[in-house]
Design a protein around this nucleic acid. Structure first.
Lengths: 337, 337
DNA sequence: ATGCTTTAAGCAAACGTTTGCAATCGTCTC
DNA sequence: GAGACGATTGCAAACGTTTGCTTAAAGCAT
């Protein structure tokens, strides 16, 4: 028989010729849309299989006026030049990839170094994607607001604020900060510090929530130590800070990675955790339980967050005017406090 | 004047009409290709700017017979159902994203749960991408080989083997294992174990190189402990293993994350590192210096690897028959050994 | 003026699909 | 046996670009 089919089938037209039908028939057979005789449909499908033919998604999308992809953008406004390795991103990305794949969409990944105030509009106007998910406002809230005004299918993972026009999904960072504060206070800690970069909206909210939840007499004494959240940067900052002779008894870190740096620096300085001081992180990355002692942290529901991001995006894509979503954080007490 | 331009410009044709020229002229003006009068070119470009018009990349790519995207696939053959959070992936992904962006290509991210032996061909045939980068062979070497036979623009990050037909870029894992072995032997360690999943080609090579580089009398005593490389799984395995009473003095982990689990479990069992035992990881993820003690590890040049992957892919895309690349590992001695 | 070259811009086909409408055919009803 | 109807398939335009070819206009030398 002719089970060797040397002929290259590159398009629906080729298949139509071979099958002795029209291109419309092939299209209808392969997409399952439109009315078509069951026999012909099956015959064409079999033929396509035999030739290893798949519809060209690009052409399909062009015709359908969509792109079939959602962009996930990581704006590096702050950590510019730093390579983000934080497991948080990988976990988030993984869940987003799954959620988008479930809906038959591709995930277009892009790290962007924000340039001027036009990068987002420029990106969107190229029509590469049907929607945009942005991980973290970074220092680009103004740009996001401007775009949100005329572009609906965009959702941001980050800090929600009444001042912002853009739609967000994110942990209630203030509440998270408050959880950390309450916990440290319960543990009797009084010489407190926060490590992070408050130019980043999420971290600012964590700090603010932290301070606000402290008893009045502690509120003014809590120290704010500025650091980027990369391992290298935060380790340097922490080491230098301890070297200055600072001897806190309670530290709240903007992220688990920063908390790990603090833990490491504290140990290097002969301090015991949680004996001499408590350390609390934020995120609950999978590795948080691998430190010694395992890290107490404010957990974000990353999986739920990713699902909500995608849900919300598709609802907006469908024309619905769905709004921001806030997710409650949860304190995970391990042994670093 | 008319600096309010309410009219929506959706296509090159709209712009042509407004500018009083033909679509070809607009195309030539905006792409810079073909001969065109300098004045008209600038006039059209200015017009496009004023209307915020960008060429539709999808249509452009369709016409040019390309997709403008490269797929990065993470096959989850082994760690099925586990969520990969390993910083290694994020670092790799970041560098890949940059390298691809530099060449004007989009990065299409996809986690794939390999189904049958057709998932890769099916993916490729949809024409979504111009090339494929695969991170890790997982347990899919056969599938990769089959596809490599007829599809050139595909490169794999992973273990190189004479038995494989597919093109790889990767660390010389055997050499990496040997580095670990030599180091432990130099430290006088003799009760050794390897932690990892040798069904994964990279890890098998690390193990094999490790054993082969040991003195003859140690080669048969080294224990192989099977574990997935997720934080959770490896921590459980390590804890159980120590609980059984095992008291090694030298551990080599398939990855830094596993090494962190070992460190954690050892500490929990009252063992001191490096006093009682040495632990060596693999990867040198940014967090490796955050553990206490900081982790000795076999470093992979992830940035260089990503660059090579992309380089190689584009050379093959250009028709060149470029072959596999092996990258030398480097031992980074910190304080866990 | 004429013809030749050079430069500039337009025409129309093509990339690989989808889909509204029209055409064909067989069947059914009266 | 004719008209009507339903089911099935084909035709051709459209999605937004790029580009080979052609034409128009202008510059130049004779």
């Amino acid at each position: 028989m002719d089970d060797s089919k040397p002929e290259q089938v590159k398009s629906i037209a080729d298949l139509a010729r071979i099958g002795g039908v029209s291109v419309s028939t092939v299209s209808r057979a392969l997409t399952g849309k439109g009315a078509l005789n069951k026999d012909t449909r099956e015959r064409i499908q079999a033929l396509a299989d035999r030739h290893g033919f798949k519809l060209n998604v690009a052409a399909q999308n062009l015709r359908l006026g969509r792109s079939g992809a959602i962009a996930v953008l990581l704006p590096l406004g702050h950590e510019r030049g730093q390579h983000l390795s934080d497991p948080f991103f990988m976990v988030m990305l993984g869940f987003l990839a799954d959620a988008l794949a479930d809906r038959g969409y591709d995930l277009l990944l892009s790290r962007v170094l924000p340039q001027g105030d036009d990068w987002l509009d420029t990106f969107i106007r190229t029509g590469r994607t049907d929607g945009v998910i942005i991980i973290g406002q970074s220092n680009q809230s103004a740009v996001l607001d401007r775009t949100a005004a005329h572009y609906a299918p965009m959702v941001i993972w980050g800090e929600q604020s009444a001042r912002n026009a853009h739609i967000t999904v994110g942990t209630d960072n203030q509440a998270g900060g408050a959880l950390a504060a309450q916990h440290l206070v319960e543990r009797g800690r009084r010489r407190l510090a926060f490590f992070g970069n408050v130019a980043v909206p999420e971290f600012a909210a964590r700090y603010q929530g932290f301070v606000a939840a402290l008893p009045a007499d502690l509120r003014d004494t809590v120290e704010l130590v500025h650091t980027h959240i990369t391992p290298q940067a935060s380790l340097e900052v922490a080491a230098a800070w301890f070297a200055e002779g600072n001897r806190p008894d309670g530290l709240f870190a903007a992220s688990d990675v920063v908390a790990m740096s603090l833990l490491s620096a504290a140990t290097d300085n002969g301090l015991s955790v949680p004996g001499d001081l408590s350390i609390i992180g934020f995120d609950d990355i999978p590795m948080a339980r691998l430190t010694s002692p395992p890290l107490t942290t404010v957990a974000q529901d990353i999986e739920g967050g990713a699902r909500q991001l995608v849900d919300l995006l598709f609802r907006r894509l469908a024309g619905e005017d769905a709004g921001s979503i806030s997710i409650a954080p949860r304190l995970v007490i391990r042994e670093s406090s």
